[in-house]
Computed example of a mutant assay.
Amino acid sequence: MRGRKILGGVVVIAGAVYLLNASWLAAPAGNDSPRIIAHRGVHQTFSHAGVDAETCTASRIDPLTHDFMENTITSMRAAFAAGADVVELDVHLTPDKVFAVLHDWTLDCRTDGHGVTEQTPWPTLKTLDVGYGYTADGGKTFPLRGKGVGLMPRLDEVYAAFPDRSFLVNFKSRRTEEGEALAALINIDPKVRAATFGVYGGEEPTRAAEAAVTGLKGFDKSSLKACLVAYEAYGWTGFLPGACRNTLVALPIDIAPYVWGWPNRFMKRMRDAGSDVILVGPYGGDFTTGIDTPELAAKIPPGFDGYVWTNRIETMGPLLKVTDPVHRH
């Protein structure tokens, strides 16, 4: 008798958990296609195998199919033309208080300059060739050398070039000063505020910017972990952790099926909490892997109303921006 009661209790609890997290009980948003974040704009792709913080990715690019260089205004324009809703870019605050847009911590890999990017004055950065270090054949040829002279933009130049577009700003450092400086830029110009989709990267500048700009969303590794770990612990109850509210949630596509209520119930919970979900590529320890193949795109749920992160906007944009999701799958 006692065993039956225990079994009955387990069945009741299991049923309650199921109903609380049944995706089919929450309607999808019904979007025709997802919104897209183009990582670094249209850029030269490379193998991620064995990549770490010290890897010079410009020295291991795939064979060229175009001449665009990451983080340049021309690459951003091409990304928006290919269907990007948001372009991700990387910033460094220089000694003369300019936000230079470049991915690398140092100049030696990608450019003809030397030294730490954030320690180099803007007049020097502006003269560099951002296509100098690209090679797809181990240094035998450098097909973009000479084509990137003067193409490193300032962040304010990017905003001016695309007044009606959106950007996700990546802080490459952990300097609180960077977040405060970006917040000052955002707070004095409503157009810049409207164009700033969010911030992420270094914990200190990300949180400083969020604190100083009302409604600005962002994430760093610690905040993302706090959200997802707590959600897996008790999100099944329908109660959303504070770390998941009014934020950006980067969710690897291979982990997504295992979060409570995926996809519809999970997305509704995040939407109701004022948070945006960004589907990124398979988990690899960072946020840079993207939805870069038709096979991965096929795993995006129909009606998904979040954002999709891609490194190949030039090919994935036309694929994802279809009006009939059946054709995507």
Rank of each mutant, 00 (worst) to 15 (best):
residue 112 D to W: 07
residue 113 G to S: 04
residue 113 G to E: 04
residue 116 V to N: 09
residue 116 V to T: 15
residue 117 T to L: 06
residue 117 T to R: 05
residue 120 T to L: 15
residue 120 T to M: 09
residue 121 P to K: 08
residue 122 W to E: 04
residue 123 P to W: 08
residue 123 P to G: 08
residue 126 K to G: 13
residue 127 T to P: 09
residue 128 L to W: 13
residue 129 D to A: 05
residue 129 D to M: 03
residue 130 V to G: 00
residue 131 G to R: 01
residue 132 Y to L: 06
residue 132 Y to K: 01
residue 137 D to C: 04
residue 139 G to Y: 07
residue 141 T to V: 12
residue 144 L to P: 04
residue 146 G to F: 13
residue 146 G to R: 07
residue 148 G to N: 03
residue 151 L to N: 08
residue 152 M to G: 12
residue 152 M to A: 09
residue 156 D to M: 13
residue 159 Y to W: 10
residue 162 F to G: 03
residue 165 R to D: 09
residue 165 R to M: 05
residue 168 L to G: 14
residue 168 L to V: 14
residue 171 F to H: 01
residue 173 S to N: 06
residue 177 E to W: 00
residue 179 G to Q: 06
residue 180 E to W: 00
residue 181 A to L: 02
residue 183 A to D: 09
residue 185 L to K: 12
residue 187 N to E: 09
residue 192 V to Y: 08
residue 194 A to W: 00
residue 195 A to N: 10
residue 196 T to G: 07
residue 198 G to H: 02
residue 199 V to H: 04
residue 200 Y to H: 11
residue 200 Y to F: 12
residue 203 E to L: 13
residue 204 E to L: 09
residue 204 E to S: 11
residue 206 T to S: 05
residue 208 A to Y: 09
residue 209 A to T: 12
residue 210 E to R: 12
residue 210 E to T: 13
residue 215 G to R: 01
residue 216 L to R: 01
residue 217 K to I: 10
residue 217 K to N: 03
residue 222 S to P: 07
residue 225 K to I: 08
residue 225 K to N: 00
residue 227 C to Q: 09
residue 227 C to V: 15
residue 231 Y to C: 04
residue 231 Y to A: 03
residue 239 F to C: 03
residue 239 F to T: 10
residue 239 F to G: 02
residue 240 L to I: 15
residue 241 P to I: 15
residue 242 G to L: 08
residue 250 A to D: 11
residue 254 D to F: 12
residue 256 A to Q: 01
residue 260 W to H: 08
residue 260 W to R: 05
residue 260 W to K: 05
